[in-house]
Write a protein that binds this DNA or RNA. Structure first.
Lengths: 209, 209
DNA sequence: CGTTCATGTTAACAGCATAAACATTTGGAG
DNA sequence: CTCCAAATGTTTATGCTGTTAACATGAACG
């Protein structure tokens, strides 16, 4: 599988744009807003975005964002999707770099946790939004699809000659393990230590090999 | 170990109180606020508390709460502590009802997840607050102590003749597993099913017996 | 009986998301 | 090329929020 780059496409606006004086129109505000939002959430631990602050950074009035997002939640959804795609890309890369089995799962787990530690607010945002969005509208969202890819990556590290039920259980087990570990670290209950992570993750035994 | 009830002590205020007409003074507003807050968070999934709304429910003006809590965060901290104590009590009860080993851990894990599912907003609140509080002030908080009890309960289900390092790793593994599972359920990624929970949890093998 | 202190009140402020009305720029059709 | 419509921006206004300051009440204690 290739590492797809699903990142937001910051298209140069018509007639170049970029900047140039105080143009009334911004160029591509939607993309800029998402980029600025991602930047703002980058190293932070707790998601907290103010429309006014974001708009100020973009050199635009607060209500301008409403031309591109129906409300704040929609903007957060867009950010969450962007973040999930980035995480997915990292996971795919990790899966690519190693084989399956316990070793492969270890690598994916470590990657998941590391990405989470490096982008705390984004992980929180992802799970926060997906919990609200997917349930509310029963639409087969892009986020749902991205999550499916994530699970599939985990399941792929498991031996093929185990029963489907056991496989489902084991996948859930693995996902829970790395996600829980990541959350405990983000919430300050466990200090981040790559070696320790690997030890904990490879302690798992659910018919991987 | 006995099941301690660390719940908030709703002391009848001096001179009885309880209610009786529109007394200018409330009686014990602090306890009432915590109780009302717990009630409000009870079945909800996402923590969201408005001081004004809470005060309205208590039949008191919004700013009255500032006589008992320096700010909103302090109130949330109090709620988180209360919630953590309740969770701890449940865990202790579960630990009491079964022996150690894989069976014991399974019971504790199921209990943890069940309580989390029944009180989603409170679990979120607990980890949200402890992440901010314990780190900010390096004080050995009551919450820190309560968490220690939680970990100790998990560790107690493990065989005694394993090395301390392995024991620490295994404890973290177990905690991560149940916490991650609970979070995935709360975020709508996994549907709650007690049997499935038990299967996933007992799939763990880290020198329990 | 009177003072003091804890605890309540109302009024005010800044910041928030958001809606409505108005302004400007862009792009396409005649 | 011109003109009109749609897209995208701005200003203004509304009702929410947490929080502070100044004032009021009542309970406890000498």
């Amino acid at each position: 599988m290739n590492v797809k780059d699903n990142s937001v496409n910051i298209k140069e606006s018509p007639t170049d744009a970029s900047k140039e004086s105080g143009t009334y129109h911004h160029g591509d505000l939607r993309a800029a807003a998402i980029a600025a939002g991602m930047e703002k959430f980058g190293g932070q631990n707790h998601p907290d975005l103010g429309l006014r602050a974001l708009a100020r950074e973009l050199g635009v009035s607060a209500t301008a964002l409403y031309r591109h997002f129906p409300n704040k939640d929609a903007l957060l959804d867009a950010l969450a999707l962007e973040a999930l795609n980035q995480l997915g890309a990292h996971q795919a890369q990790a899966a690519q770099s190693v084989g399956g089995g316990r070793e492969g799962f270890g690598e994916m787990g470590v990657t998941y946790v590391r990405w989470a530690v490096e982008h705390p607010a984004l992980v929180r945002l992802i799970y926060d939004r997906v919990g609200k969005v997917d349930l509310a509208a029963g639409n087969p969202t892009k986020m749902g699809e991205a999550f499916y890819q994530l699970r599939a990556g985990i399941a792929a590290t498991m031996s093929e000659d185990i029963s489907p039920e056991h496989r489902a259980t084991a996948t859930l087990h693995a996902w829970s393990l790395v996600h829980g570990l990541a959350m405990l670290i983000l919430d300050g209950q466990v200090e981040y230590d790559p070696d320790m992570i690997r030890k904990v993750v490879t302690l798992a035994d659910f018919g991987l090999e």
